[in-house]
Design a binder for these strands. Structure first.
Length: 513
RNA sequence: GCUCCCGUAGUCUAGUCCGGCCAAGGAUUCGGCGCCUUCGACGCCGUAACCCGGGUUCAAAUCCCGGCGGGAGCACCA
């Protein structure tokens, strides 16, 4: 049937039925949580404390928080600080960093738990699993264990009796084994098609010193087992986690089925990366520790803290991360998308200022008497008021523009037109001489300027960690740390917290275009 | 190699479960125009997508089969 025939046929039958399809919304909404009702939802955040929260973690934060809000539920922060490994150590400083990150992000936890406080709770569960015949004590070296798992070969201990396992478990707890000499393994199925799921380790030994509990415990749970226990003991109703942790679902469900307990369902999302932020937490950790980076708020870490430092609102981050829904695809998004979100939030209320990067002093021959000019703080929002700025030459002008437009006529925005001298701009700190060319608002390239008499030095921290110097309007001196401005033709910036009002140079951090 | 997940425009996403209101909606980017004394904002216009191949069906982005591509897991890390 052609579209025309179809329309005719439709008309003959009495016209189309009114569409019941809901209009697709411009902002996608998260799907409902299965089995959730207002007031009965308990969720958790479980970051490993080895670094500040970054953009990838933000998704975990806001998805969980969004559901907490929607169902008026609870959201726990559970530090996943089991003992880790030599390569993956718990950083004692980081507990507070993460707590602070949550505050910045606007996601306050309803309660805070530390896995390291809960170690003894895992022991009786281990015994329960053993008594169900679900585990055995394996003394294979790690290397052999791995090979056997791959080939599906059982080690001799796999067939040990429950009694033997219980004895072995007691010996393990009692200190009869050194780290690496024995582990408690789950008895799944060595023929499981997924090699990753074969007889995984439940509990193991470690002599590493834990930053919170020292050497109080030697027998530590593996992540999956600890969650099989805590997701039940903490009364969680849903577990929302990245899809990199799907095998943990299977482990937990296997254990729950074995013990006949009921655990929460799992929901996942895919990996989220910012194109510009191809950084690993461990790399940032190294650079922060060695002092190459200016702490976790260094823009190069792309941590939540660093985004706040740049003036990116938590709300922008929230909208940004929620816009991806619960999609399972691994995605890489340009930071511009986040900037667009933030711009939408702050543009209308952000005052404009003139900032001249890499400034060169320029005298203007033939200029009329110029005292001050009155400029709007925002071109589209008069309610933000106006400001008076000194307007007499000489002016600081951006070196890059002087070079690009040598010998040409251009316009100092909102002020006057001038003709630049020809030839290259000498290095160093020369004073150039330009010629006045009227005040008429002509169609000319427009550049920002600041009169020498009304300027202050500014140090602008860039995203690559470098510091750019420039001159800006002196009115910046009366602003407060944390204030956000748009430097015209440059971008949005935020005044640094460590800057003191009234002091020079003014310290600012670049946010985004 | 084995297991699981994912594949809609440049980049994301809605739609896929329950086939037809989808000649595919939204955001962002990009291009053009307008406006404003910013390369910002706003308005209008535009470019642009169902991974490929079969099958089922009157009808497939949606169901089935087979490929291909990408990601993750296969740690006594989390």
């Amino acid at each position: 049937m052609t579209p025309g025939d179809r329309a005719a046929e439709l008309a003959r039958l009495g016209g189309a039925i009114e569409s019941t399809r809901p209009p697709s919304s411009d902002r996608s909404e998260l799907p409902p949580l299965p089995g959730a009702a207002e007031g009965n939802v308990v969720l958790r955040l479980a970051p490993f404390p080895n670094g500040a929260l970054h953009i990838g973690n933000a998704r975990m934060l806001y998805v969980n928080d969004e559901y907490r809000r929607r169902y008026k539920g609870k959201l726990y922060l559970v530090f996943d600080d089991t003992i880790g490994s030599e390569e993956k150590r718990v950083d004692p400083e980081i507990f507070n960093v993460i707590l602070n990150d949550l505050t910045i992000a606007g996601v306050p936890p309803d309660a805070v738990f530390y896995k390291s406080d809960r170690i003894p709770r895992f022991y009786p569960w281990a015994v329960r699993v053993i008594e169900k015949g679900g585990a055995y004590l394996c003394t294979c070296p790690a290397e052999l264990l791995r090979r056997n798992r791959e080939s599906g070969t059982p080690c001799p201990e796999r067939s040990q009796t429950v009694e033997t396992t219980l004895e072995g478990w007691e010996k393990m707890l009692g200190g009869a084994y050194a780290p690496g000499e024995a582990v408690l393994r789950l008895r799944t199925d060595l023929a499981d098609p997924d090699p990753a799921f074969r007889d995984r380790v439940l509990m193991r030994l470690s002599d590493l010193e834990h930053p919170r509990v020292g050497r109080k415990y030697r027998v530590w749970p593996m992540l999956e087992f600890s969650w099989a226990v805590d997701d039940v003991e903490l009364g969680l109703t849903h577990v929302l986690r990245g899809k990199d942790l799907v095998i943990e679902d299977r482990m937990e469900e296997f254990i729950w089925k074995l013990l006949g307990v009921k655990g929460p369902p799992f929901l996942h999302w895919g990996l989220l990366r910012l194109r510009e932020a191809k950084i690993a937490k461990s790399k940032s950790f190294k650079e922060v520790a060695s002092g190459v980076y200016d702490g976790w708020a260094d823009p190069r870490t792309w941590s939540i803290d660093s985004l706040a430092r740049r003036g990116i609102r938590a709300e922008a981050l929230r909208r940004f991360t929620l816009s991806f829904g619960l999609s399972l695809s691994d995605i890489e998004v340009p930071a511009e998308t986040l900037y667009a979100e933030n711009r939408q939030l702050i543009d209308a209320t952000t005052p404009r200022k003139s900032f001249v990067p890499d400034p060169v002093l320029v005298e203007v021959d033939g200029a009329p008497e110029l005292g001050t000019v009155s400029l709007p703080n925002h071109p589209d929002h008069p309610e933000l008021g106006r400001r008076e700025v000194p307007a007499a030459p000489p002016y600081w002008l951006p070196r890059a523009e002087l070079e690009r437009h040598a010998g040409e006529e251009l316009r100092l925005k909102d002020l006057l037109n001038l003709v630049l001298p020809t030839g290259p701009v000498p290095a160093g700190t020369p004073t150039l001489r330009a010629h006045f060319a009227g005040r008429e608002n002509k169609k000319l390239p427009r550049i920002q300027w600041v009169a020498r008499a009304g300027s202050v030095p500014v140090e602008l921290l860039e995203l690559d960690g470098s510091r750019r110097t420039g001159r800006a309007e002196a009115s910046l001196l009366t602003a407060a740390p944390g204030d956000i401005f748009q430097f015209e033709r440059v971008g949005f910036v935020r005044l640094e917290d460590r800057w003191k009002r009234g002091t020079e140079p003014v310290l600012a951090c670049f946010g985004h275009p």
